[in-house]
């Protein structure tokens, strides 16, 4: 009796389904045709137009700055959170865990509405600072989850061993815990950076005048058909960046795991 081919076929179709639209997008970024229905010749013109679009680059720089600041804060907070969730197990951590998991389980729309209500109620003007706070909030959960996954494979006897060999509490953290968790922490940081760069929904709720991030800029570009091919070019560049980040993150995840 041979194994059913159904799962393999379905998997192939799923992969096609997930990637074909993006492939078309990349292809169309070099297509002279505006709507990409037919191939009308190779062109760099959309990339040239993108290069000249200052408002895109301004938005990109703002997103970059926000993502960096978000990553810094969320990595520290998320790593601490993961460590305390891993190390302790009481009523406090039950509450803590719920607060970490819920932002992942609730739709972004509600998080956006919640933060908008907060900033409106407190009369805080929306802008880069409120976007940063919002991004840190949902990135904490992702970082914590990634680091927690690493910690699950972590042998706590290593900490005992380090102390047994004469390391004080801080030396244990610095010489054993940090080097071993670093790949996980970096993977979490990378994820936080990507998510912050990409977020549209929550950002949309808490942005104000003068705080147009890259996704917000893309959203406004989508309203004018003139700039649609430029989005293809921009998307292709972003896809390349995401690919590099994902490959790097996969590498980080693989390092330090013993060859089996």
């Amino acid at each position: 009796m041979k194994r059913s081919r159904l799962p393999a076929t379905l998997t192939a179709l799923v992969l096609l389904f997930l990637n074909a639209p993006l492939a078309v997008l990349v292809l169309n970024s070099f297509n002279a045709s505006r709507f990409g229905g037919t191939w009308e010749g190779f062109t760099w013109q959309w990339y040239e137009r993108l290069w000249q679009a200052d408002e895109v680059w301004d938005a990109f720089l703002l997103s970059l700055r926000l993502a960096t600041a978000t990553t810094l804060a969320a990595t520290v907070l998320g790593t601490l959170a993961a460590w305390s969730l891993h190390r302790f197990n009481g009523r406090l951590q039950h509450v803590h865990r719920a607060l970490i998991v819920l932002p992942l389980a609730l739709p972004e729309l509600l998080m956006g509405m919640a933060l908008l209500s907060l900033f409106t109620a407190l009369h805080i003007p929306t802008g880069p600072l409120t976007i940063w706070a919002a991004h840190v909030t949902f990135c904490i959960s992702y970082v914590a989850m990634v680091v927690l996954g690493r910690l699950r494979d972590f042998d706590t006897h290593l900490l005992d061993a380090a102390r047994d060999l004469g390391a004080g509490p801080w030396q244990v953290a610095y010489r054993v815990l940090l080097p071993l968790l670093l790949p996980g922490i970096l993977a979490g940081a990378l994820l936080a950076f990507t998510l912050s760069m990409d977020d549209f929904v929550i950002t949309f709720f808490v942005s104000g005048p003068g705080s147009t991030t890259l996704p917000l800029r893309i959203a406004s570009m989508m309203k004018t058909s003139r700039s649609l091919p430029v989005i293809n070019a921009l998307s292709t560049l972003l896809l390349c960046a995401t690919f590099l980040a994902a490959a790097l993150s996969l590498r980080l995840g693989r390092r330090c795991t013993p060859p089996s």
Binding site: H157, L158, D160, A161, L165, G166, G168, L180
Partner: peptide, 20 residues
């Protein structure tokens, strides 16, 4: 006395060798 200040050392059950 905390473990780091004791002139006592341990061989752990699963050795707890630092993998890095």
């Amino acid at each position: 006395l905390p473990p780091e200040h004791r002139p006592v050392n341990t061989v752990f059950q699963n050795y707890a060798l630092f993998p890095h």
